[in-house]
Computed example of a mutant assay.
Amino acid sequence: MNTLSIFSALKDAIQHACQSRDFGGVLRIAESTGMRGGEDKRSITILRYEYKFSDSDGNSVELSFRSYDPSGPFQMEPDINRFNLTLTVDGRQAGQYSDSYID
Score class of each variant (00 low, 15 high):
residue 24 G to T: 13
residue 48 R to C: 08
residue 8 S to V: 11
residue 22 D to Y: 07
residue 41 K to W: 08
residue 46 I to F: 00
residue 86 T to I: 13
residue 8 S to L: 12
residue 25 G to V: 03
residue 49 Y to S: 04
residue 96 Q to W: 13
residue 29 I to C: 06
residue 26 V to A: 05
residue 84 N to H: 13
residue 34 G to K: 01
residue 95 G to C: 03
residue 58 G to I: 02
residue 38 G to A: 07
residue 70 P to Y: 01
residue 86 T to N: 09
residue 87 L to C: 06
residue 40 D to N: 10
residue 28 R to G: 12
residue 65 F to K: 03
residue 4 L to Q: 15
residue 77 E to T: 12
residue 98 S to G: 13
residue 43 S to T: 09
residue 101 Y to Q: 03
residue 48 R to E: 10
residue 75 Q to V: 06
residue 95 G to L: 00
residue 24 G to R: 00
residue 72 G to A: 10
residue 42 R to G: 02
residue 62 E to L: 09
residue 19 Q to F: 13
residue 28 R to P: 01
residue 68 Y to L: 10
residue 79 D to I: 04
residue 39 E to D: 09
residue 75 Q to D: 11
residue 58 G to W: 01
residue 20 S to D: 15
residue 4 L to C: 00
residue 6 I to N: 02
residue 49 Y to E: 03
residue 48 R to W: 00
residue 3 T to W: 03
residue 20 S to E: 14
residue 75 Q to K: 10
residue 31 E to A: 15
residue 96 Q to D: 15
residue 78 P to Q: 08
residue 65 F to D: 03
residue 96 Q to M: 15
residue 88 T to H: 03
residue 65 F to T: 01
residue 4 L to D: 14
residue 56 S to K: 07
residue 11 K to C: 06
residue 53 F to D: 07
residue 45 T to P: 00
residue 84 N to F: 10
residue 53 F to K: 08
residue 86 T to E: 10
residue 44 I to Q: 12
residue 99 D to R: 04
residue 51 Y to R: 02
residue 7 F to C: 01
residue 7 F to R: 02
residue 85 L to Q: 08
residue 100 S to Q: 14
residue 94 A to K: 02
residue 75 Q to L: 09
residue 41 K to E: 10
residue 77 E to D: 14
residue 4 L to P: 00
residue 44 I to C: 00
residue 82 R to C: 13
residue 20 S to I: 05
residue 23 F to N: 04
residue 23 F to R: 03
residue 86 T to V: 14
residue 7 F to Q: 01
residue 2 N to T: 09
residue 55 D to T: 07
residue 68 Y to A: 10
residue 18 C to Q: 01
residue 73 P to C: 15
residue 12 D to L: 13
residue 37 G to I: 01
residue 50 E to V: 09
residue 50 E to A: 13
residue 14 I to R: 04
residue 2 N to Y: 07
residue 68 Y to Q: 09
residue 15 Q to S: 13
residue 39 E to K: 10
residue 71 S to I: 06
residue 98 S to C: 13
residue 79 D to T: 12
residue 23 F to G: 06
residue 37 G to T: 00
residue 14 I to V: 05
residue 63 L to M: 05
residue 28 R to N: 15
residue 45 T to R: 11
residue 53 F to P: 02
residue 38 G to K: 03
residue 63 L to A: 03
residue 87 L to E: 04
residue 75 Q to S: 09
residue 49 Y to T: 04
residue 54 S to G: 10
residue 15 Q to C: 10
residue 65 F to V: 06
residue 101 Y to V: 04
residue 97 Y to P: 05
residue 20 S to F: 11
residue 5 S to G: 00
residue 75 Q to G: 02
residue 79 D to R: 10
residue 6 I to S: 06
residue 50 E to K: 10
residue 102 I to S: 14
residue 21 R to T: 14
residue 38 G to H: 04
residue 15 Q to D: 15
residue 89 V to T: 14
residue 103 D to G: 15
residue 42 R to L: 12
residue 21 R to I: 11
residue 78 P to L: 00
residue 50 E to M: 09
residue 12 D to F: 11
residue 76 M to A: 05
residue 45 T to M: 12
residue 37 G to C: 00
residue 23 F to K: 02
residue 95 G to Q: 02
residue 49 Y to D: 05
residue 96 Q to N: 15
residue 51 Y to C: 05
residue 84 N to Y: 09
residue 55 D to K: 04
residue 47 L to V: 11
residue 87 L to Q: 07
residue 60 S to D: 07
residue 46 I to L: 08
residue 6 I to L: 03
residue 58 G to D: 00
residue 99 D to E: 10
residue 101 Y to C: 01
residue 33 T to Y: 08
residue 70 P to D: 02
residue 50 E to T: 05
residue 90 D to S: 15
residue 39 E to W: 01
